[in-house]
Design a protein around this nucleic acid. Structure first.
Length: 666
RNA sequence: GCCAGCGUAGCUCAAUUGGCAGAGCAGCUGAUUUGUAAUCAGCAGGUCAAGGGUUCGAGUCCCUUCGCUGGCUCCA
């Protein structure tokens, strides 16, 4: 007896094995037509999946409306793409072709170097395949038979995959569609016709099995949807992301520039970008002071011996700028981290438990020689400034310090209108013994990390094995207004650098004995470069008033009012506002347009009426003309908005972009 | 670093099979004195990324280097 329960609560009984496809057909021809896949006890399967007799299962038929069906269809689309490419180019070797966040890719090894020029032909071929609407047929085989099949097809990568990756699978499956057959776990949609709309997006190199010592394959990225409208919507979001690209906006709005002559990956902050950065830095500086941090300054270079001692140099030599050799025999390097310098400040005095926690903060600029292919605008650079601090504390103080770090990050992000984030807790891999520090310390720390997140009501996910060898960590992952993820700030415990093997840090405890402190690295924003790069994209260049480089611009209706304009501008400046002026001999419409395009939050428009009444006409970037008010009133309005750090507008759509931010830089 | 693509004025982009390097915006000068998203005219602006080669002739074809883009690998 086979019992199948359906989402509506009803149950059906069968005397023998059956499939979701058959059950859907029984329920109704409409459902059978709409069915794409099924979920049996929450496992996604194809409609041809055999539900064995003698069990009791929950079944859901998945139609085009189910997000899970989209993933199934996209994988089928990957097969269709592979089939098309094999048809067009001889000697294609297939590697892997999985579904990803917003689409799918397939890795190929072929003689012809694929380029976007080939996309048209591939898409045309795919269209033909989809139109033919052939079924995806599942073929189950034994290992031996499977090896024979891929051997006959001369698919070397599949042979290797069966022999190695699938070594412990006795039973394997293939999917056949027309002449195309591919080793595949499935499931697939019933037939190709259900792929409503698709588009090839890009081609890129990718190493076989993600290992750079392996051969590089050609990866084609694409996406697919059940209907044209969804695809169009997705493409609009891709366009929106392009429009917000911080590299484009940074150039347009004169925020920063990169000069090949200065060097790739080295950011030159233009005055407008520098205002944003320094405003943000001042904000954080105030907050650090409130929270008991002490500012320190350390140089940009240090003797190589310092980094030998910390262990960084031997390990990260390749991604550091080469040492500078001096005539006296000493070698110096550009600092890739601030922590060893801060440690030396700690070590400059004998420390008592009474001084702990000692919190040393610095906007420290560090240099890392990132691989050239890795550089990207402000988000991946060779010189960057961390909003860094190191906390030296006792093991008992770790939970409170950790709590403080998280709270500060929460506060900072909230002040920027960044509400959508989660915390990723990197914990030990229980199998590994690579970790520094006693397991008692680790237990204590990991437990307190989890508890603090719970107390603060933060969405936290634990990832075993993601901890650094020297301590557990918490990374902030922010989702921006387009749904893209950015890895930003981090809090990391460190049992390594203070240890006797490294810097042998000490403090005298209440027991008058020497103890080793715990060190916490933390940076709520991560790097100023990456963070502001992200902010530019999140705000699409339209910064909230408190951060806007030019907060208000005075526009005069004609040159007759220039003198009045100067008076108004002077008053705004005196009130501490960042004011710009436009006294050009242009029509007011042109001046407004220019200010609008430069994303100036407020314009004050001055003509005869305003001059006579001592008023200003406020024009809001978002809401337009707000009418005339006395100057003092306009100033008060802007100041309130600045003091409250109001974030007025940020596009909020859910593009579901893939998390492409690289890892944090600690 | 690797694979692929790209590089023309400050910016966005043209330039036919290899045949006189162009436009809009921005800039400068002048005129205009303007009421809520573009006033008009003139001027100036280039080692076509750099270097080498093929050719009667190269922005265009080939090679090398640099830079950028999309990915991969890496990321304290």
């Amino acid at each position: 007896m086979l019992t199948v329960s359906l989402p509506d609560g009803s149950t059906r009984e069968y005397s023998e094995s059956t499939t979701p496809g058959q059950i859907a057909a029984e329920i109704g021809p409409g459902l059978a037509r709409a069915a794409m896949a099924a979920a049996v006890d929450d496992t996604i399967v194809g409609l041809d999946f055999v539900i064995d007799d003698g069990q009791s299962v929950a079944l859901r038929i998945l139609t085009k409306k189910d997000p899970a069906a989209l993933g199934v269809m996209r994988h089928s689309a990957a097969h269709i793409m592979a089939r098309a490419i094999m048809k067009l180019f001889p000697g294609v070797q297939l590697a892997f072709g999985p579904t990803i966040e917003n689409g799918f890719y397939y890795d190929f090894d072929l003689e012809h170097a694929l380029s976007e020029e080939d996309f048209e032909a591939i898409e045309a071929e795919m269209k033909t395949i989809i139109k033919a609407d052939e079924v995806f047929e599942r073929i189950e085989t034994t290992r031996t038979a499977a090896l024979e099949i891929v051997g006959d097809l001369a698919q070397e990568y599949k042979v290797e995959h069966i022999t190695e990756g699938l070594a412990d699978h006795d039973q394997l499956s293939f999917y056949r569609q027309g002449e195309f057959i591919d080793l595949c776990r499935g499931p697939h949609i019933p037939s190709a016709g259900a792929v409503g709309a698709f588009k090839l997006l890009s081609v890129a190199g990718a190493y076989w099995k993600g290992d750079s010592s392996n051969k590089q394959l050609q990866r084609v990225y694409a996406t697919a949807f059940f209907n044209k409208e969804d695809l169009a919507e997705h493409l609009v979001l891709i366009e929106e992301a392009k429009r917000r690209d911080h590299r484009t906006l940074g150039k347009q709005l004169n925020l920063f520039t990169i000069s090949p002559l200065v060097g790739p990956g080295l950011i030159l902050w233009q005055p407008k970008g520098a205002i944003i950065r320094s405003t943000l830095e001042n904000f954080i500086r105030d907050e650090l002071q409130n929270r008991g941090y002490q500012p320190v300054y350390t140089p940009n270079i240090g003797k190589i011996d310092l980094y030998e001692k910390s262990g960084h140099y031997p390990y990260y030599k390749d991604s550091m700028f080469a040492p500078m050799k001096m005539e006296d025999g000493n070698e110096y390097i550009l600092k890739p981290m601030n922590c060893p310098h801060h440690i030396m400040i700690y070590k400059a005095n004998p420390r008592s438990y009474r001084e702990l926690p000692l919190r040393l903060a610095e906007f420290g600029t560090v240099y890392r020689n990132e691989q050239s292919g890795e550089l990207n605008g402000m988000t991946r650079v060779r010189g960057f400034t961390q909003d860094d601090a190191h906390i030296f504390c006792t093991a008992d103080q770790v939970p409170a310090e950790f709590m403080g770090c998280i709270e500060m990050t929460q506060y900072v992000l909230k002040s920027l209108g960044l509400d959508n984030y989660r915390v990723r807790l990197g914990l030990r891999d229980p199998q590994s013994d690579k970790y520094v520090g006693s397991s008692k310390l680790w237990d204590h720390a990991e437990k307190s990390l989890i508890e603090v997140c719970q107390t603060l009501g933060i969405e936290a996910e634990c990832e075993a094995g993601e901890a650094a060898f020297y301590g557990p960590k918490a990374d902030f992952v922010l989702t921006d207004c387009l749904g893209r993820e950015w890895q930003l700030g981090t809090v990391q415990l460190d049992y390594n650098l203070p240890s006797a093997e490294r810097f042998a840090l000490e403090y005298v405890g209440t027991d008058n004995l020497s103890h080793i402190p715990v060190m916490i690295h933390r940076a709520p924003l991560g790097s100023m470069e990456r963070f502001i790069g992200m902010l530019i994209e999140h705000y699409a260049g339209a910064f909230p008033l408190w951060l806007a480089p030019e907060q208000v611009r005075v526009l005069i209706v004609s040159e007759k009012f220039e003198e009045y304009g100067r008076q108004v501008a002077q008053q705004l400046k005196a009130a501490g506002l960042r004011v710009g002026t436009d006294y050009r001999a242009e029509k007011i419409g042109a001046k407004i347009r220019d200010a609008q395009l430069e994303l100036i939050p407020y314009m004050l428009i001055l003509g005869g009426r305003e001059m006579e009444s001592g008023q200003v006409a406020i024009r809001d970037r978002i809401d337009g003309d707000l009418g005339a008010v006395p100057i003092a009133e306009a100033i008060a309005k802007l100041q309130t908005e600045i003091d409250d750090r109001v974030v007025r507008q940020s596009f909020s759509g859910s593009a579901g972009f893939v998390a492409k931010g690289s890892q944090n830089e600690y």
